[in-house]
Design a protein around this nucleic acid. Structure first.
Length: 557
RNA sequence: UGGGAUGUAGCCAAGGGGUAAGGCAACGGGUUUUGAUUCCGUCAUCCGAAGGUUCAAAUCCUUCCAUCCCAGCCA
């Protein structure tokens, strides 16, 4: 599959052709370890690692850990795992902005020496007030023109811990009348007496994003610093810092962040769902987090394909969830092993089949891929089929089992139903059938057409599966205090994943490893959950069969 | 009322003076031992709007309209 040439790849192509950066390509994926990675990050991961690979370059994993009050080691571990799972390979280049604190500090002193940075005693509120508004220029701080020596002294005392949180900040001296608010003397350092997950109590001043990110990129020799659109305003400052310091200058390129319908991709909202207990955790299968998707059985290949298909542009856009589902189905259809399962059984007795015989029939594990092994399934006089696969009064175009009609038991035999035994209430108890011994394997011996093919299990030998069918998989409670949660909880699965939750524990543990999906034919794809107590279904359209039946029957009536 | 960015189908998205790629969705049909898959077909007289330049404009120019981002000591 040829990589589409989006505007970013075009730019890199250009830069390598003109030998800018010596033809080198280096990107980075720079998450802040303050939450779990989600679908939105997948786009960035695929982009950064993908581009690096395509151009024989490198992609670093860098934790943007400059805000100790929000970051935790739990998150860095989870992020590392998720990136690796998605296929990102940073080799030994695992970096932390906090590793650069000492050098960043030295650069700050250099800015002070150059007269391009100053310590400001104004409070946060005053700074905001002095900044001006979108349409009116700001005012200069009374501390703006402190001498170099005083600034240096103040800054060192900030580092030494002489001042409480918020007492002073280090600011760049740029232009309080700049039309771009980012350039109105941005804050570079703030005082934060807080323990950092890596540097502990070594520091009580921490650099801010705008100051840290560009220098980290520079220090690492990044060539193309890819970030989302909302940072476009910050690019001017990114360039200013590096130019003023006269250091190596990567270039920042922005692209539109990913939005997906029926879900939320905002760390703030996701964390709210977790903390308020509306979901069981970050890896709740309803979550759009990478770990949630993984637990749900979404293969990383599908996510990569999704990111590829979504494309890259500079327009804010919202991709339909259906696109994601398509990518998942596409991969699963190709790779998932097939099994038969009966959720709501009704007994079938093959009257002309010997009562003491059990045959071992071949069932391929994948119909389109004969290279896959097949397995033996037992077949005997008494079987179970899905209750729904038989109708006393069939709608039009129903071509499964009906009294007097012939259907194929998949990979087994052609059978004809002679009689439906019902109980006093009219419910079907048992189906009396006869089979055609010539049709072993399900082939029609004389070429006669048999439209219906249904699934079955051997009554005596089947793995007993406790199964339940739910119209809706998940409880749709609507948290009032979580914005957009209605959409979130109602649609994460639903409208979309209207599915089946089956307690298929024994069957599934027999067939799948955790995280792997198998297809229960005509039911959809199921994934064995980590505790193996239930199977996690299914991706909407994988249940298309159900949709299709419903549609056809509706039409028929 | 400042600055930055963006407008191509229901949703993504190519195309940057020569007469609108592709995918998802939708719809119609063929094949099929999963009513799945697969295959084939249909789906923008038109590119935010209005003017202008040109033999020729989605592409160039002008004006207008709409949407998003920026006033954290978050990233």
């Amino acid at each position: 599959m040829e990589a589409p040439v989006d505007f970013i790849r075009a730019k890199i192509l250009d830069d390598t052709a003109s030998n800018r950066y010596g033809g080198r390509v280096c990107t980075r994926f720079p998450p802040e370890p303050n939450g779990y990675l989600h679908l939105g990050h997948a786009k960035s991961i695929c982009l950064n690692f993908g581009v690096a690979k395509e151009f024989a370059g490198q992609c670093n994993l860098r934790f943007d850990d400059t805000n100790p009050t929000k970051e935790e080691i739990e998150y860095v571990d989870a992020i590392r795992e998720d990136v690796r799972w998605l296929g990102g390979d940073w080799q030994d280049r695992e970096y932390y902005a906090s590793d650069y604190f000492e050098r960043l500090y030295a650069y700050a002193e250099q800015l002070i020496q150059m007269g391009r940075a100053y310590v400001d005693d104004l409070s946060a509120d005053e700074i905001r007030e002095y900044r001006g508004t979108l349409t009116s220029p700001g005012r200069e701080s009374p501390y703006r023109n402190r001498g170099v020596e005083e600034n240096l002294d103040m800054f060192r005392r900030m580092r030494a811990g002489e001042f409480p949180d918020g007492a002073r900040v280090l600011r760049a001296k740029i232009d309080m009348a700049a039309p771009n608010l980012v350039m109105r003397d941005p804050t570079l350092y703030r005082i934060r007496h807080a323990a950092h997950h890596r540097t502990g109590d070594m520091w009580c001043i921490y650099p801010l994003y705008d100051y840290t990110h560009c220098l980290s990129d520079s220090l690492e020799g990044v060539t193309h610093s890819l970030c989302t659109l909302e940072f476009a305003n910050n690019r001017e400052l990114y360039d200013w810092v590096l130019a003023t310091l006269g250091v190596y200058r990567p270039q920042q390129i922005e692209f539109a962040r990913l939005n997906v319908t029926y879900t939320v991709l905002s760390k703030r909202k996701l964390i709210q769902l977790v903390e308020s207990g509306y979901v069981s955790g970050w890896d709740d299968p309803r979550m759009p987090t990478l770990c949630g998707l993984r637990r749900r059985g979404v293969p990383p290949q599908a996510l990569r394909e999704f990111c590829r298909r979504v494309g890259l542009a500079r327009v804010n856009s919202t991709v339909e969830y259906a696109m994601l589902e398509f990518c998942i189905r596409e991969y699963l259809n190709e790779h998932a092993l097939r099994f038969m399962v009966v959720l709501d059984p009704v007994k079938v007795v093959i009257e002309n089949y010997p009562g003491n015989l059990v045959e071992e029939l071949d069932m391929p594990l994948h119909p389109k891929n004969p290279a896959r092994a097949s397995r033996k399934v037992p077949f005997s006089r008494e079987l179970y089929i899905e209750r729904d696969d038989f109708r006393l009064e069939p709608p039009k175009k129903f071509h499964r089992l009906v009294v007097g009609a012939e259907v194929r038991l998949r990979y087994a035999y052609l059978v004809t139903c002679r009689e439906a035994v019902t109980d006093a209430s009219g419910a079907v108890r048992e189906l009396r059938c006869v089979y055609d011994p010539q049709s072993r394997g399900g082939v029609s011996p004389d070429g006669r057409k048999v439209k219906g093919t249904i699934h079955w299990v051997c009554a005596g030998r089947a793995v007993p599966a406790v199964a339940r069918l739910y119209e809706q998989l998940f409880v749709s409670e609507t948290p009032e205090d979580v914005p957009e949660s209605k959409t979130f909880l109602n649609n994460l699965n639903p409208g979309s994943v209207r599915a089946v939750q089956a307690l298929l524990e024994p069957a599934l543990s027999d067939m799948a490893v955790e995280g792997e999906c198998v297809q229960f034919e005509r039911l959809g794809y199921f994934c064995k959950d980590r505790d193996s107590t239930h199977a996690l279904p299914v991706f909407n359209r994988t249940v298309t069969l159900r949709d299709t039946w419903a549609k056809l029957e509706k039409k028929g009536e």
